[in-house]
Simulated scan of single mutants.
Amino acid sequence: MKIIDDTLLDEVSAQAKVSPRLRMNYNFHQSLDDKCHRFLNAVEPGTKVEIHRHPTKDESFVLLRGRVRVNTYNDDGTEIESVVLCPEEGLYGVDIPKNVWHNVESLESGSVFFECKEGPFVPHEEEGVLHLQR
């Protein structure tokens, strides 16, 4: 059994802070080929999570601590919806259907969410990244 507690969240957050990408995963699944991927995703302000989609996979995020913004977009890059998740305010997570463009933005240091989606892992380059001129 793996316990999700403050110690684990602190460890993953510390790794995210020193990572060039300003984020770090802690996987509960054993292999990138597993059928179900379950992991912690620690994100720091300034991390770049490109607008992307998973054509065949639903994806769920549950924020354990901190504040993050989750955005969804149309095919032309127009924002459809935006929500700031914050457990202290009663906004805990989102479920994003397959083939919906989305991204995540960290608004607070130490933010960590639990993520679950179907495996196996497919890099975004193969699934889809929305390239917008901003």
Rank of each mutant, 00 (worst) to 15 (best):
K117S: 08
V43S: 02
E127Y: 01
V83I: 15
V129R: 01
D10F: 08
S13I: 01
L64C: 07
N25K: 07
A14W: 03
S60W: 03
L40C: 10
V49P: 05
G90K: 10
K2E: 15
Q15P: 02
F113R: 08
V122D: 12
P120T: 06
E118D: 10
G119A: 04
R67Q: 15
R23Q: 02
T72Y: 04
G90S: 12
N25L: 09
E79M: 14
V18K: 08
E59P: 10
L40P: 06
N103C: 08
E105T: 08
S109H: 10
K17A: 13
D6H: 07
K35L: 06
K48W: 11
Y92R: 11
V18D: 01
H124W: 08
L85V: 01
V122R: 12
L40T: 04
S111K: 08
G93P: 05
L8C: 14
D5S: 13
P87S: 15
L22T: 02
E44D: 09
Q30Y: 06
K48Y: 15
T56W: 08
E11F: 11
V100P: 00
D5R: 07
E118T: 15
H131Q: 12
V100H: 02
E88I: 00
E59R: 12
E11V: 09
R67S: 14
V62Q: 05
C36W: 11
E79T: 13
G90Y: 14
Y92H: 14
R65N: 14
N103V: 05
T7A: 13
A14M: 05
I96Q: 14
N74V: 02
W101S: 02
K57A: 14
V49E: 01
G66C: 03
H52I: 11
D75R: 11
K48S: 01
C86T: 11
H37M: 10
D10V: 02
N41P: 01
L132S: 03
I51G: 01
D6G: 10
V43K: 03
L85Y: 00
Q133M: 09
E89V: 05
A14S: 02
P123K: 11
V129H: 00
D10W: 07
L132Y: 11
F39R: 03
R38Q: 07
Y73W: 04
